[in-house]
Amino acid sequence: MNFTTYQQVFESILQDANPAAPYNNPDYLNYTKLNWSRQQRWLKTGVLNEEIISAVKNITEPQQWIVITEPWCGDASHIVPFLYKIAELNPLIQLDIQLRDTPPFLIEQYLTNGGKSIPKLVIRDNENNDLAVWGPRPAGCQALYDQLKAANANFEQMKIELQQWYNEDKGRSLQQELLSVINSTCSTSVA
Rank of each mutant, 00 (worst) to 15 (best):
Y84N: 04
G135H: 07
E108Q: 15
Y166S: 00
S117A: 14
I86H: 09
L162E: 07
E156M: 09
L174Q: 02
K170N: 09
Q109K: 13
A76P: 05
Y145M: 12
A150T: 13
Q164K: 11
L99P: 11
L95G: 01
Y84E: 07
I86E: 01
G114H: 06
A132N: 05
T60R: 04
A132Q: 07
K170R: 09
Y110I: 06
D130G: 04
W72M: 09
P136F: 04
Y84L: 11
A150K: 15
V133L: 01
G171K: 04
Q98P: 00
N129K: 15
A55H: 04
Q175D: 01
E50T: 11
D130I: 14
I118D: 03
E177A: 08
P71S: 02
E88N: 12
N128G: 03
N152E: 13
N167R: 10
L95T: 00
I97N: 05
L99R: 11
I97C: 05
A151R: 06
S173A: 15
G114M: 01
S54M: 10
S77T: 02
W72K: 08
V80C: 06
S117K: 10
I66D: 10
F82K: 09
A55M: 05
K116H: 07
D130P: 01
I123W: 02
I52K: 01
N113L: 10
A151Y: 05
P104M: 01
S173Q: 14
W72D: 11
W165H: 12
P81N: 09
A139L: 15
R172N: 04
P62W: 00
I118C: 09
M158T: 14
L95V: 05
E161R: 12
Q176F: 12
P91D: 01
W65I: 11
Y84Q: 14
G115L: 15
D96L: 00
T112R: 06
G74A: 10
P103I: 02
I79P: 00
Y145I: 13
G135T: 00
W165T: 13
Q163C: 07
D96K: 12
R124I: 08
C73Q: 11
T69Y: 04
V122L: 10
N129A: 15
I66C: 03
P91T: 06
I86M: 09
L92S: 06
G115A: 03
R137Y: 07
L89I: 08
L89E: 06
L121F: 08
K116R: 15
Q94D: 03
E127C: 02
E108F: 04
I68R: 05
P103H: 07
A76G: 11
V80Q: 14
E51S: 12
Y84W: 08
N90W: 11
Q98I: 14
R172W: 09
L162M: 08
P119A: 02
I93C: 04
L106T: 08
S54K: 05
L148I: 13
